[in-house]
C-alpha cells in the first residue's frame, strides 16, 4: 500500500480514538482533569484505571468523535496545558508506582498565539525531560497520527508500538511537500520520502511492535490488552535503574554512528 493511503487511513473519520481504546482495554477508568496551572485541555484525556487487576495511569491525545466533540477537543491538537496535565499525571503515576500507558493520536501540538504565549515548546520539552527518568514502566501506542513534537511528548517510552495503519513523522507530508517543492499537493510523494508508516518505522527500529488491524478493531483491542499485560508484568520485575538505563539506551542508539 502506498504511504499516502496509510496517511489517509490514519486520519479517517470513524477511526477508533483514545476514548474507544480506554473503554475497551481498561476497567473502572476515572478521568482526572486539569493541569492545576491554567485550564483543562480536552485534547488530552488522562486518568487511572485497571488493566485486568493492575492499576495503571492512562494518558491519551483525543481527536474527538462527532463534530461537536472534535471541536471541544481541538481535533486532538493539544495546548501547553494538555502536556502539563499529562506530566502531572505521569508524576503521580511515579509516586504511586503505576505503569503509564499513552495513546498518541494528533496531527501535532496546536500552533496559535495563546499556545506560544503559554510556552508550547517549554511544555513539550518538560515532558521529554521528565519521561526520560520516570521511575515506572512507560508504554506508548500510536493509534492514528503521530505528528512531530506534539506526539513525541507522549512517546518517550520503554516501548513504542504502532497500529498497522497509523503514521509517525517529524512533519506532516503536506508541510514537507510545501517546504520541499512549494506545493502541498505533492504530499503523496513526500509521504514516501518521510518513511512514516509502521512498516518502515519498524525496519528503522523506531518502534518495537506493529499491531495488526487485519482482524478488525475488536481483535486489536484484545491484542493490545494481552501485550500490555505481558510487557508490564515483565517490566515490573526489572530493577528501577536498569529500566531507566534501558530507556536511555533505547533513544541513545538513534544516530549513534
Amino acid at each position: 500500500m502506498a504511504a499516502y493511503d496509510i496517511v489517509t487511513k490514519a486520519r479517517a473519520n470513524g477511526r477508533a480514538t483514545t476514548k474507544n481504546y480506554i473503554e475497551n482495554i481498561f476497567t473502572d477508568f476515572i478521568e482526572l482533569h486539569g493541569d492545576r496551572r491554567f485550564s483543562d485541555d480536552n485534547a488530552v484525556i488522562s486518568g487511572i484505571a485497571f488493566l485486568d487487576t493492575t492499576p495503571v495511569t492512562v494518558i491519551g491525545l483525543e481527536k474527538g468523535q462527532d463534530t461537536k466533540d472534535k471541536i471541544s477537543r481541538n481535533f486532538g491538537s493539544a495546548q501547553p496545558e494538555g502536556y502539563r496535565k499529562a506530566l502531572r499525571q505521569m508524576q503521580l503515576a511515579e509516586k504511586f508506582n503505576r505503569p503509564v500507558i499513552c495513546f498518541v493520536d494528533t496531527s501535532g501540538a496546536y500552533c496559535g498565539i495563546g499556545a506560544e504565549e503559554r510556552g508550547q515548546g517549554q511544555a513539550i520539552a518538560e515532558c521529554l525531560y521528565n519521561l526520560m527518568t520516570l521511575k515506572v514502566p512507560v508504554i506508548s501506542i500510536i493509534i492514528g497520527e503521530g505528528g512531530s513534537g506534539g506526539a513525541l511528548a507522549l512517546a518517550v517510552a520503554d516501548e513504542v508500538w504502532m497500529l498497522e495503519n497509523s503514521i509517525y513523522s517529524v512533519i506532516s507530508p503536506e508541510g514537507c511537500a510545501s517546504i520541499l517543492w512549494k506545493d502541498s499537493s505533492k504530499a503523496a510523494e513526500a509521504a514516501e520520502c518521510l518513511k512514516l508508516t509502521s512498516k518502515e518505522l519498524y525496519k528503522l527500529n523506531i518502534i518495537d511492535k506493529v499491531i495488526s488491524e487485519k482482524l478488525g478493531q475488536k481483535q486489536s483491542y484484545e491484542t493490545i490488552k494481552r501485550l500490555l499485560l505481558e510487557t508490564i508484568n515483565a517490566s515490573m520485575n526489572i530493577d528501577e535503574n536498569d529500566l531507566l538505563e534501558k530507556r536511555y539506551q533505547r533513544f541513545r542508539k538513534f544516530g549513534n554512528t
Partner: peptide
C-alpha cells in the same frame, strides 16, 4: 528545528538529547 530530511530520526534526537540533559542535571 528538527531536520526534515532525516525524518523520524531527527525527531528522535529531541528525546535522545533530553535524556542526556536530564542525566547531566541529575
Amino acid at each position: 528545528g528538527a531536520r526534515m530530511q532525516e525524518g523520524i530520526l531527527s525527531l528522535m534526537q529531541m528525546a535522545k538529547v533530553s535524556g542526556a540533559v536530564k542525566k547531566h542535571s541529575d
